[in-house]
């Protein structure tokens, strides 16, 4: 569990043209604080720099300006403390499901941390069970469906017990039913482990369903236009919370925010205070 602070973050890419290189600003002067144990979702149109932001949080890419602190320490590259779940699963196809889950645990062991060999195997199986995959330990990724592959990827990201889980549109490639199952699975895991989760999506509904906070990003250059606190009760305690009035209001509010930036100048038609007062009722 960790607090993430992003201070004045700017990321520029060099695009090489015919004669000269031009700098494209993907993210501009972004400030953000994500609290310890928070489920934080980021929603925005494609090309708004949300994946770039996740790359920087993962340590796979470095900021052009500004800094990112995790528990007060600047990020200096990828780390087992911050796991990533990618949209395209990114499982190693030559390894079985269990061996995939073991990769992070074995890196940990090489640094003299984590469980011993027998316990590592047990841990891999335990995490596969946690994501609902008992009995597929020895199957290869190509023998599994998309939903099952993403479950393996989640188990792999969690098995070494990272402080932060970064998720880059992890359910975007799945069918609607599988997506809902995995959303519930993720909420269950989060409630149990209280890992800080940063979840990127372009689905407004997904952002509202999962996040305690939803940050709305706009493109060109990428920045956060608003952070909305989602004060819904336990998602799974209510039958079909997505059809409640409150959920619908959040959804619509975020929709308006996202579309307002397409048409500059227009104001959001929904008063935000309406929703927050509704939450306490």
């Amino acid at each position: 569990m960790s607090t993430i602070e992003i201070k004045n973050l700017t990321k520029k890419f060099l695009r090489s043209g015919a004669n000269e290189s031009t700098a494209v600003t993907a993210i501009e002067s972004l400030d953000l604080r994500i609290e310890d144990g928070e489920f934080f979702t980021l929603v925005g149109p494609s090309g708004c720099g949300k994946s770039t932001l996740l790359d920087i949080l993962a340590g796979l890419s470095t900021p052009s300006h500004g800094e990112v602190l995790v528990d007060g320490e600047p990020i200096s590259g990828p780390s087992l403390e911050r796991s990533v779940v990618f949209q395209q699963y990114a499982l190693f196809p030559w390894l079985t499901a269990a061996a995939n889950v073991l990769v992070g645990l074995e890196s940990q062991a090489r640094h003299g941390q984590g469980p011993n060999k027998a316990d590592r195997r047990a841990r891999a199986h335990e995490y596969l069970r946690l994501v609902g995959l008992e009995g597929v330990e020895d199957k290869y990724p190509h023998e599994l469906s998309g939903g099952m592959r993403q479950r393996v990827a989640i188990a792999r990201a969690l098995a070494h017990e990272p402080k932060v889980l970064l998720m880059d549109e992890p359910f975007a490639a799945l069918d609607a039913q599988t997506r809902e199952q995995l959303q519930d699975l993720l909420l269950d895991i989060w409630k149990r482990t209280r890992t800080t989760i940063v979840f990127i999506t372009h689905g407004i509904e997904e952002a509202v369903y999962l996040g305690q906070k939803v940050a709305v990003m706009s493109a060109k250059p990428g920045k956060i236009t608003e952070i909305v606190d989602i004060e819904l009760q336990d998602r799974q305690a209510v039958d079909d919370i997505r059809s409640t009035r409150q959920f619908g209001e959040y959804r619509h509010y975020l929709w308006t925010l996202l579309h307002r930036h397409g048409r500059q100048g227009e104001e959001a038609t929904i008063d935000k205070t309406l929703i927050t007062s509704g939450a306490s009722a």
Partner: peptide
């Protein structure tokens, strides 16, 4: 990229 985030 996945390998890097898994501590390789």
């Amino acid at each position: 990229r996945a390998g890097k985030t898994l501590g390789l």
